[in-house]
């Protein structure tokens, strides 16, 4: 019969059990079942299928199977099974009752699907998630400890204000990296998350800084440059610029942009409005040690920072090359 041929040849492991016999033995198993489990036909037929269970099989899953059998329900149960050679596989067992024309229970069918791969992938994913949380927690703690060391050392050397400036930068860096770990698996991070995290403390009311950028992703390596640059811009805005008064605003935009040399850059535009009247700081192109550091960092990253003291507010443009994107 066509049906029997199909049953025998399908790659889906199938067996039938007889609930009208004592201990509900298997009365039929196809080739795929024998191949999956490693048992010969005479070791299968006539036996209850519990021979597939072993020490690591979850008893709760076995109870689920029993409950489905008792209530004549169709069920899918995922459980750890054992082959004849003692190796294990994850079995997505699909089982259900088969009735005759008069509604009498004749058999139960069981189809076994080896989902070990799916299971392993899922377990690895969960493990990776747990690991990244652990690392993220440790990293935050580490930043906290570093902050402690800097401030305690600064105090002992009478350099508390220097220590607290160092600490502000360390904290900004810590915030910039906060989200990178969860996303490390992707190999890239969403720039916007880092930007928002860095700037969060400068906008406690959550209305002074407007974020315009999109979900552009980039290499995690540039996070420290982005973090420290924005920290300096925000510190400056808090002291002298749009965030120093009661009503000024800063808009921050970011995107990827190609330049005329065919390179991809991350471009961040910082635009202050509504602050006190703007004057360019005297004394060279700098503007405080904070920007000296930023400019040095940007030079190393082959990026640039242009600041225009527009009468309406400072407009700054940060350009950081990101090599990998188009290569």
């Amino acid at each position: 019969m066509l049906f029997e041929q199909a049953m025998a040849q399908t790659r889906m492991a199938i067996c039938l059990t007889d609930p009208n016999q004592d201990d509900q033995p298997i009365v039929f198993a196809n080739r795929a079942f024998r191949e999956l489990t490693g048992y010969a036909n005479d070791e299968i037929v006539g036996h209850n299928c519990r021979f597939l269970q072993g020490p690591e099989t979850d008893p709760a899953k076995v109870r689920e199977i029993r409950a489905a059998l008792e209530s004549e329900r169709v069920a899918v149960v995922e459980l750890l099974n054992y082959r004849k050679d003692g190796t294990t596989f994850w079995n997505a067992l699909h089982l259900g009752p088969i009735y005759d024309r008069d509604g009498r229970l004749l058999y139960y069918f069981g189809s076994q699907w080896d989902v070990t791969d799916v299971h392993t992938a899922r377990a690895e994913q969960m493990h990776a998630k747990a690991m990244s949380r652990e690392v993220s927690h440790r990293m935050k703690n580490m930043f906290s400890v570093i902050g402690g060391i800097v401030s305690v050392t600064g105090r002992s050397m009478g350099a508390q204000s220097v220590a607290s400036r160092i600490n502000e930068r360390i904290q900004a860096l810590g915030r910039a990296y906060e989200h990178t770990l969860d996303e490390a698996a992707f190999g890239t991070i969403e720039v916007g998350q880092a930007i928002r995290a860095v700037l969060r403390p400068y906008d406690p009311e959550d209305c002074r800084i407007v974020f315009k950028g999109n979900g552009v992703r980039t290499d995690p390596n540039i996070v420290s440059v982005v973090g420290l640059t924005l920290h300096e811009l925000a510190t400056n805005a808090t002291k002298y610029g749009a965030l120093s008064g009661d009503c000024g605003q800063v808009s921050v935009d970011w995107r990827h942009e190609g330049d005329r040399h065919g390179r991809q850059n991350l471009v961040i535009e910082w635009c202050e409005r509504g602050g006190p009247p703007v004057e360019a700081p005297g004394g060279g192109a700098g503007g405080g040690t904070g920007f000296d550091i930023v400019e040095t960092l940007l030079r190393v990253a082959k990026g640039t920072l242009d600041r225009n003291w527009d009468p309406g507010g400072l407009v700054a443009r940060v350009v950081i090359p990101i090599g990998s994107k188009d290569q």
Partner: peptide, 8 residues
């Protein structure tokens, strides 16, 4: 209070 936050 999330770590890291400056002690003060």
């Amino acid at each position: 209070i999330p770590k890291p936050t400056p002690a003060p």
